[in-house]
Amino acid sequence: MRPALAVAACAAFLFTAGCSSGDDGQPDRARSSAPATDGSGTSSTSPKPADTPPAKGSVSVVRTVTEDLKSPWGLAPLPEGDLLVSSRDEGTITRVDTETGKKTEVGSVPGVAPAGEGGLLGLALSPSYASDHMVYAYFTTESDNRIARMIYDEKKSAGEQLGAPDTVFKGIPKGTNHNGGRIAFGPDDLLYAGTGETYRTELAQDKKSPGGKVLRLTPDGDPAPGNPFGDSPVYSYGHRNVQGLAWDKDKRLWASEFGQDTWDELNDIVAGDNYGWPEAEGEGGGSGYHDPIAQWHVEDASPSGIAYAKGSIWMAGLRGERLWRVPLDGTKAAHDPQAFLEGKYGRLRTVVAAGGDKLWLVTSETDSRGNPGKGDDRILELRVS
């Protein structure tokens, strides 16, 4: 068990519950809140070592990079500074010039079958992108969720720059909701994927199923050497719906997770650990489960993408419509999480580190029912501390 920090959303020890909605916009979850402690009754405001980030940070919106995007989901920064962004519902990938905001469709991904929360989701560049120009995509088909890679040839005409997809991993359960979808290459150059249990809660504890897991694969899609369960892609299990993956400066993996009845979570991911779903949600689930380091009411979070910058995890909230900062002290929260941009840009889907104190942030006004929400979707450039 690890110590956990709960976020105070109300006055001390005031518990509340009510209907809520997450990524799918449907009322399926109630939430409660509790004051922040380190799990032993010690306040999270106790003195921290000098190398931990301060209790309070800052966020400023430098500019809107581009707007009028259609159901953006995944984001992959290119080496020269531009961005690739996926459209969940259109099944296309668009290149965004980060200086001018110009959008150029580079191609569509064959076989994408958008429905509900499914469609063209996460993007990642190959660790050898400079030589192989491979773009990886996680997407929903008529039969499953899968990961494929495509050559991105910038010399071809717009709309025809993506090569035919080469499927590297398939058979991830699909559903109307809880498809997971985030992929990222780690510091070890291995491919990690966050998946969902598609409302079939038993899949999360079934180590033979890739649903409700964090998966760890080679770039070719094979189970990575050293995985905790032998020749299996499963790296951690007991997850409900993982849509955020990021590594800190010490190469520790972090993941965000949608809860159901009580807590949304931020977890430090340890190989082979069980994160409790559906038997446990939030901290205190039992000695066999790994506790989150922070947890939220769904109305304050419904977490999707995460990024690491300036000693903190930054977490995009969908229903919460805010960006959370969680300052880290090793595998604990150094201080209470801090919220920014609340209600200013609508639902927030993806946040990606852009070096130093800079982040890219993607809004997500279109929900799983295709409703456009309050306005168009955009990419923002942020400066954080």
Rank of each mutant, 00 (worst) to 15 (best):
S364C: 02
L361N: 03
K332E: 15
W360F: 15
K344Q: 15
F340G: 06
G355I: 04
K344V: 03
A353E: 05
G330T: 08
S364L: 02
R347F: 03
F340P: 09
T350D: 12
G356P: 01
L323E: 00
L323Y: 04
T350H: 10
D336G: 06
P327R: 09
L323P: 09
A333V: 12
A354P: 05
T363W: 01
T331E: 14
K344I: 01
A353C: 00
G330S: 13
E321C: 03
A339R: 08
A339P: 15
T350K: 10
E365Y: 00
L323M: 12
T363F: 02
R325V: 14
K332A: 14
G356E: 02
G346F: 04
Y345M: 07
L328V: 10
R325W: 12
S364V: 01
G355Y: 07
G356K: 02
W360E: 03
E321Q: 15
R347P: 03
L328M: 13
L341W: 11
A354M: 06
H335Y: 14
K332Q: 15
G343K: 13
V352H: 08
F340K: 04
D329W: 01
L341Q: 08
G346V: 06
A334N: 13
Q338S: 02
E365K: 07
Y345S: 07
L359I: 05
K344F: 01
Y345P: 10
K344S: 13
E321S: 14
K332C: 04
D336I: 04
A333N: 06
G355K: 08
E321V: 01
K358M: 02
D357N: 15
D357T: 05
G330D: 11
Q338R: 07
A353M: 01
K358P: 00
P337D: 09
V362Q: 10
T331S: 14
V352F: 03
L323A: 06
L328R: 12
E365I: 00
E342D: 09
A353G: 15
G343E: 12
G355M: 07
V362C: 07
E342R: 08
E365C: 00
H335K: 01
K344H: 08
D336A: 15
L323C: 11
W360D: 05
T363R: 04
D357K: 11
